[in-house]
Amino acid sequence: MTVGLPAKKAVHRLVQDYSGYISATMRNDSLYVLHAPSNNEEIAFIREFKLSEFDGEEGCVPYIYTQSGVTLFRPFFCKNDQLYMFGKRPEIFDLTTKQFLYSEYVAQANPEWSESGKCFIYDQAVYRSFEMHSYSQGLDVVRDYELAGHLPLDLEFYLPATDQYFYGFSSSRMAFCVYCLKTQTMLLELDLEKYRIGQWPIKKHVVRYESMLFVLAGNSVLLVDLELNKMVAEFNYVELEAFQNLLSSGHINGDAYAYKISAARDGFVISNARSRSFMMYVAVSGTDMQLAWVKHSSSEVTVINTEGDLLFGIEDARAKAWDKFTGEEIWQASAGTMASGIELGDNWVVYTHPSGDLQCFRWKKPYLSPHRPS
């Protein structure tokens, strides 16, 4: 997905007057917004905003989904043309048929489950965690709303699995694991203790790009090839002279190490959203990882990588973009934002927050960095 520099003013600012909870996700130029009310007397609903066609009249956009009894924020994702709703009574909604593939408002296969949990589909079976934020009891396998099996895994996962590879961090020991749903075998287990920084807890996060996993664990980023079922490279960012200079100069301190990673074809960016924070971009070619730049900030930073030459993010309560090859700030929105999340679509970047005020920016032509390596 090639990205460009938007105008400084948002084209749309959506859901500015709603008293409930908002979740948002994108597919192409469609922004899907899940509204969950703060009381049981109203319904939850999803609207699909086709941003390139939208005329600004929110009330005229029809619901594609309604549900009663949802009164909490629900993590919300679009994967493989399906909407996944984690949290209270998890659901999976097919955008092609506009039908539920799974909904615990229809039935709950195991009475021992917590009301809130996570789920995903593989090979026409639903895999459901016992609780939303606890993974020690593994996953139940459900077919046609009946229990069909159990996986005794304790892997913490952030997103729904979209193929045979199920991966995450063990909740009982300091390890990262990759499990194959197709063969029901553990493909990889990585001990993470050696990546600990002093006595600090190991901050960890994982993202996937095609067949590669980028695993942030303590002082390093580990590159895992799913086709080879092994770790192929590691990158210790804490040992870098540039990062040590940030520490010694007092620009960051304490446990202000990276806790988030975002990856694309040509590299990854790591960051820590603290009052004194930093972000670092690392170029990746095959298994070779090279520091491009690192910069600090006196305010919180949230940043995501893209397929183009830009990083989009939030700094000092302002939507921003940086040239990924230099770290130079080259765009800033004219108005502030309370956003905590960022969604990318075709020619759109949307800044989101659970309280609403979704700011939608559009670009017209790709940004081509003069600093892109030849």
Rank of each mutant, 00 (worst) to 15 (best):
G308Y: 09
V232S: 06
D94E: 12
R362D: 10
S19D: 13
Q16L: 11
E42D: 14
A319L: 10
V15N: 11
P373C: 03
P111V: 08
T71Y: 12
I92K: 11
K295I: 13
L181T: 01
L192Y: 05
G20H: 00
I121M: 12
T2Q: 14
A217M: 02
C180S: 15
S277A: 14
E53W: 09
A233L: 07
S369L: 05
K260M: 07
P201V: 10
K50M: 07
S136Q: 14
H35T: 01
V215H: 04
F49C: 03
H353W: 00
K320A: 14
Y165G: 07
K9N: 11
I197R: 04
R47S: 12
Y84F: 06
Y127N: 02
H205G: 04
E91A: 06
P90N: 08
S38E: 07
V221Q: 04
N39C: 06
S68L: 10
F361L: 01
V303H: 05
L101F: 08
V232F: 06
L181A: 01
S271H: 04
I330E: 10
W113R: 15
E57D: 15
K118A: 04
A36L: 00
S114W: 07
D288W: 10
N40D: 04
A335G: 11
T66F: 04
K260C: 07
P373R: 02
D323N: 13
G4M: 02
W113S: 11
D144C: 07
E146F: 03
F54L: 08
A242L: 09
S271I: 00
G267N: 05
V349I: 06
